[in-house]
Amino acid sequence: MSATGTHELFPSPLRGGGRGGGGAEGTTEPRSAPPPPPAPPRKGEERGRTPSEAGYNFAYLDEGTKRMIRRAILKAIAVPGYQVPFASREMPMPYGWGTGGVQVTAAVLGRADVLKVIDQGADDTTNAVSIRRFFARTSGVATTTRTTEATIIQTRHRIPETPLREGQILVYQVPIPEPLRFLEPRETETRQLHALAEYGSMHVKLYEDISRHGHIATTYAYPVEVAGRYVMDPSPTPKFDNPKMDHSPALQLFGAGRERRIYAVPPYTSVRSLDFEDHPFRVQRFEHPCALCGAEGVYLDEMLLDDAGRRMFVCSDTDHCEGRRADGHVGTGEAV
């Protein structure tokens, strides 16, 4: 990748050394990789700018804190999959509710960015709404629900169905960054295991699943090996999304606020889900297409319609579903 190509991966704050990320006095340079011209807005779409909240710095965090976080991010990018300790701050939302992702987003957010926030694949779940509003209030940046328009997407538990492109940053909220934590609770031990690339216990765990259940009984937070070195927790996304992480053109950043760790998968980096030759990694498959847009090969939510067991399967990624319906795709609308 060329030097300019590297620049394109980092929207304004990560570009150029040391400059505040759109700090109060900072001027925002034109982006070297402007997003493609926005598509005409869809009906009911949320897109707008609001002035930032008085009394707080751009995107809430002070510039010194942002610089500290950016340094951790740069280190994380340099050592893919390695968990970099960082001095997580106390945020005005609870630990466990996305404070790590929020701090990473705040550190990489520039005035020209367009932010999308999803939780469980949807833009309108309450915590996604809350975090999107937080940034609208404290930074005034444009927000969107459309994956294609966003330059930064903060997510909890899903990767959008629409393939990401170069220049986009996907920020994951991570509860437990340590993939070995449930095998070894001690941080002093797990750090040593990573240093020695001693991942035998994880393979034994997966093997025991197979011998006991006939399957690897891990359905989300399915461990991956990054760039052939570190085993990493992909955050509790369903394993359905793991293949999207592999060689993604987008930069993937992971923030764990309570556990004070940041890690990253740089663009075009190999992300391999752990498996065995005779038990290859497989993703979930749904028997029905989305009842609203008819999409197949996407992740679905199961809706309970009544107490007689009628249920309906619909897209988990609400933006993807709305986009398809706007393009004229129609599902059966039927319960199953």
Partner: peptide, 28 residues
């Protein structure tokens, strides 16, 4: 704060992970 945040975050939506577990339990 760390304890309450992480305990109480369990009331946030976990639909997609639960869906993954549902699929596995049904299959098993």
């Amino acid at each position: 704060l760390q304890a309450t945040g992480f305990v109480e975050h369990l009331k946030l939506p976990h639909y997609v992970d639960f869906q993954a577990e549902l699929e596995l339990v049904r299959r098993l």
